[in-house]
């Protein structure tokens, strides 16, 4: 785990995103425990109150839940929730910056689409064969 103190994104949001990434990647499985506030605070050298804000954000989003006296656990269905929320944000978070950069570089929309088509098929083929 690595947070960027200089980033434009507040630390507690970065933290929530890292935990979400790990849930999506299957590093933290649903219904399993995630590291405690103490562990994370010490590992990242960040005030525990900041870590708690990140955790509370995840609780609000229904991604993790607190078990009193035990710790934090990943909710059932958390992965699907993260996917759904991020899909909604995909346009503004990824597509918009991509198209802006393309415009800056003078790459036309159709060129972008052509690139995507080429890239996409290669990638999915590789993924599929790796999965099988």
């Amino acid at each position: 785990m690595r947070i960027n103190i200089d980033s434009q994104i507040p630390i507690f949001i970065q933290l929530a995103e890292i935990v979400e990434d790990n849930i999506l990647n299957g590093i933290y499985d649903e219904e399993t425990q995630i590291p405690s506030t103490t562990e994370v605070a010490v590992a990242l050298k960040v005030n525990p109150a900041t870590i708690n804000r990140g955790v509370n954000l995840l609780v609000e989003r229904g991604i993790v839940y607190k078990k009193r006296g035990v710790g934090m656990f990943v909710c059932n269905g958390a992965r699907e929730k993260i996917r759904a929320r991020r899909r909604k944000a995909f346009l503004s978070d990824f597509l918009q910056p991509l198209l802006e950069e393309a415009r800056n570089l003078g790459i036309s929309k159709s060129e972008v689409i052509a690139m995507l088509n080429g890239y996409n098929s290669e990638e999915t083929n590789q993924r599929r064969s790796a999965d099988e």
Binding site: T37, T38, A41, V42, A43, K45, N47, P48
Partner: peptide
């Protein structure tokens, strides 16, 4: 320095 910051937070949390 790194060790100090970690120990400080670990102790503070405990």
């Amino acid at each position: 320095r790194d060790l100090f910051y970690r120990e400080l937070l670990a102790r503070y949390q405990a």
